[in-house]
Design a protein around this nucleic acid. Sequence first.
DNA 1: ACAAGGATACCT
DNA 2: GGTATCCTTGTC
Length: 174
Amino acid sequence: MRRVIKPAEFQGKNTLALARWLLGKVLVRTTSSGRVTATITDVEAYVGEKDLACHASKGRTKRTEIMYQSGGRWYVYLCYGVHEMLNLVTGPADYPAAILVRGLETVSGPGRVTKRLSIDRKLNGALATRAAGLHLQDHGLVPPRGSIKSGPRIGVDYAGPVWAAKSWRFWIEG
DNA sequence: ACAAGGATACCT
DNA sequence: GGTATCCTTGTC
């Protein structure tokens, strides 16, 4: 069983539930030089303006505008002037939330994820469709019960103790 | 332990 | 127009 996941599936649903659900789903990157697929194993949720770790905590700006669009779009930004970060926008329009893809089955670290899949900011704002060159598939692989772990998000100490402590990172053990 | 590296937001 | 800061990584 192999099903294409549509952008609409990321609208109007709880972002934390979506983040957990995204584990085991498959990223499909299509470019002129071919196709690369990878299973998602590590994600983080960023939810709403109140979440001080979320870029949208600064409100609606040129950069965060994409997070206020309806879910199912890619949000790609540059971090530390070095690494591209891949996020999937979730939720309805005007509610800023996104899920950071932090790791793949054979790749640890969000900067390496985008490197592996040849992803950069040119994809920012694109819908998660095959036509855009990056979409998702459900291969029916559900992580074994108990293999899903959760814990604090990485690199967000600046958000203060309350928000940095939220267990909004989800990953498949191993 | 720390430099690299560029965009962003928020000052003046 | 100046500057502190950033959802990191590789090499020191």
